[in-house]
Design a protein around this nucleic acid. Structure first.
Lengths: 187, 187
DNA sequence: TGCATTATTTATCCTATGTTAATTTTTTGG
DNA sequence: CCAAAAAATTAACATAGGATAAATAATGCA
């Protein structure tokens, strides 16, 4: 997925602004297992996924909680870090070898201040992500884990292939044992 | 809560931009029970709460699901509506008589296009809301309803006074009966 | 004030999911 | 290709929370 596609899927910026963005973006390839963001640390970068899959997780009562998967076309940032300039509360781990576009947070912040199209791009990014998270929260509110698993099977079947089931269970908010049970019922 | 306070708590805009915002904002008072946004309808306004409390809800399998409360200082928008310009999926109801600052979506969109400070204000708004929703999603992921109720007791004790328990139960993702059980255990 | 409506609690029984542990399957490195 | 490690499944039992219904408390309004 090209950087143009990734940027424009969120909000179409004029060529000149796209140019400015492209100038500060570099491409990097990182191995499976690499930790892109780490709890408690400040990161100076934002990434866009050209190829690969990643997960965001944190610890709650010693249990690992995966709360987000990012794939081709997704933007990877440590929200708390990026928004409030405080150490992030999440780890982000590459689940496959990934090709990423990298941009320095400072460059991005600078562009926000000087280019209104890029500021609006940033605005749209937050807004669309907000809707996604809100929809997930609502779906959790009143549907059983089994239904939510079905939803993944229907809408993102590739996820099941690319990601370990323990991470999917965590994402669904259930234990791996429970997910196993659900899967066995479906077959 | 003054409109300046509400705007600046999200992102401090220069006086000139604040002035532009103020010019397109008007104050309205609406009665308890009034529906500010309705499922399936396009709304042309965004609101800021000066005084009062509201809830956002929708129907899932014929059950009412409350997924957000807004209070003094909060911004009230129908996300889907505002972001994607599609009919909203939620109802927003006033739980008390409210004093609101109202701004036309079209005026706001126009300001986003012409004033970079306001565009960045909009960006920060989406980002901070995103963090809040994400935190709630995570808290749901691995803590029991009883713990989440305690969290409300600690962090927003006024909510229990101002809002019916059935809405709080729904917000917590449990039935009213279950919340009652939890409350009786605490006492 | 008092009746009617609505909100909350309590009780009973049931199901989805958690916990722990043992077993099987898959993946990985030498 | 095999042994060790990691991941996934299965089983047995425990618990949080759901459904329904009935009782009580609170609220609104004539």
């Amino acid at each position: 997925m090209s950087i143009e596609q990734i940027i424009n899927q969120i909000y179409t910026v004029p060529e000149a602004s796209g140019q400015k963005l492209r100038q500060v973006i570099e491409e990097v390839t990182l191995p499976k297992g690499h930790i892109l963001f780490e709890v408690g640390k400040i990161s100076r970068n934002v990434y866009f996924i050209k190829k690969g899959i990643v997960r965001a997780y944190l610890y709650q009562h010693d249990t690992e909680v995966t709360f987000w998967f990012g794939r081709e076309g997704d933007t990877v940032i440590s929200m708390k870090n990026y928004v409030e300039n405080k150490p992030g509360y999440e780890n982000i781990e590459l689940l496959e070898e990934c090709v990423l576009y990298r941009i320095k947070t400072s460059d991005l912040q600078k562009l926000f201040k000087e280019d209104i199209h890029i500021a609006n791009w940033g605005r749209r990014f937050g807004e669309t992500e907000l809707i996604k998270v809100e929809e997930r929260l609502i779906s959790r509110q009143f549907s059983m884990a089994a239904d939510r698993y079905q939803e993944i099977l229907t809408n993102s079947p590739d996820l099941i292939q690319r990601v370990q089931l323990c991470h999917i269970a965590s994402y669904l908010g259930i234990t791996q044992v429970s997910l196993s049970r659900i899967r066995s019922k479906i077959r």
